[in-house]
Write a protein that binds this DNA or RNA. Structure first.
Length: 171
DNA sequence: TCAGTGATTAGG
DNA sequence: CTAATCACTGAG
């Protein structure tokens, strides 16, 4: 597939368990504080899948915070955790299928909280449309790095079944 | 191992 | 209104 092409809505309107591993090796482009566009290859993601997934915020139903996850895929879901860290997620699937991919890391930036802090991602990115945004989007690269799978991080509260789903994908 | 930090949510 | 919870990080 050609590189340098923006991933359009159709890429994200698929099941999160297809989209999440597919994002490994793709480039995230973002307008930085100095106005330059940075390009970062994605290395670490997690899938959160619907209302039945007890680790997914949408499992508690539709709330103001989770509203964007219920929309059609291709937008960002950004929220604050522990009063300090913004988490960057990409909404996937069709409308009313609340799913999202947490971007845990990109090349040279490990950890979801450190990533957003470094790149200047905050609440203003919540709901951003990845089809048309001029400050953040994803691009095809043509590379498909080998990756590992494992349980998701920081969701011990979700019970034995959900906390052991191997829905983390990382290089 | 554990405190920091404040938005979000359920409940009274 | 109160209080619990939290998809994390860095210090010790």
């Amino acid at each position: 597939m050609a590189s340098g092409k923006r991933l359009s809505r159709d890429f994200f309107i698929r099941d999160v368990l297809e989209v999440a591993p597919d994002l490994i090796g793709k480039n995230m482009h973002i307008r930085l504080a100095d106005k330059a566009i940075g390009s970062f290859q994605i290395t670490d993601v997690e899938a959160y899948r619907g209302m039945e997934d007890k680790a997914c915020h949408a499992s508690k139903g539709r709330t103001p915070r989770t509203e964007v996850m219920f929309r059609q895929g291709g937008r960002l879901y950004v929220y604050l955790v522990y009063g300090m860290y913004w988490m960057l997620n990409v909404v996937t699937a069709e409308e009313n299928h609340p799913q999202a991919v947490l971007i845990r890391g990109v090349e040279n930036l490990s950890g979801p909280g450190r990533l957003t802090k470094s790149l200047g991602i905050d609440r203003t990115f919540n709901g951003e449309d990845l089809d048309v945004s001029e400050r953040i989007w994803f691009e095809e690269t043509g590379v498909n790095p080998a990756f590992n799978t494992g349980p998701r991080i920081g969701i011990d509260y979700s019970g034995d079944y959900w906390k052991t789903r191997p829905w983390r994908f990382y290089v």
